[in-house]
Amino acid sequence: MKDPYKILGLNKGASKEEIREAYRKLARKYHPDQYVNNPLSDLAEEKMKEINWAYNYLMNEAPDRAGGSNNYGYNSDSRYIQVRDLINRNRLLEAERILDSIGSRDAEWYFLKGIIYMRRGWYDQGYRHISRAAGMDPGNEEYRAALNNMAYQASSYRQAGRGMEGDGCDACDVCTCLLCSDCCCECMGGDLITCC
């Protein structure tokens, strides 16, 4: 069994307050929102489980709640469903082949194409395609959430750097936390972080 203190980066005998603080920091770092459309999301999920386990173990709570799932929403075209399924299983080449064979280029098409680009590391094309989808179908929340999420990830990277400058910068911490809780309530509806 792994040492739960080590997992949370704490010394043995840390107080409950310290445990809560460490947990909050780590949960923010490995939260699924931070790994949306990231090919390493499964590893982050493992890490998140480990952190949850350590936290619950130390706080003497019942272990593990159900984790968030990263399934996409619904769509009527069966080929789109197939493409989404392949993307979820990281079979990007097949997904792209099917997508390219579809004649009509609607918002959903641009969205899925954008997601494939994102997974491949082609963030610029990814962002352009998803923006285009959101422009074609402004009412679609999934498209908008994907764009917001990219902006959120980039900004939380900047916040992390700022938080390290000099001696602790609490204002930034608060800001990241707000952003994070805001986003996790909006997109996930999950309760992985106890603070939101």
């Binding site: 770092k29 490995y30 931070q34 790994y35 990231n38 390493l40 590893l43 982050a44 890490k47 590391g121 963030y123 610029d124 962002y127 990219m150 902006a151 990830q153 980039a154 939380s156 990277y157 900047r158 992390a160």
Partner: peptide
């Protein structure tokens, strides 16, 4: 603006890998 965005997003992903 678009260049800075794509660069920052790339760094944020680099950091995601690093944290694992």
């Amino acid at each position: 603006e678009p260049v800075e965005f794509t660069l920052t997003y790339t760094l944020s992903n680099l950091a995601k890998g690093y944290e694992l």
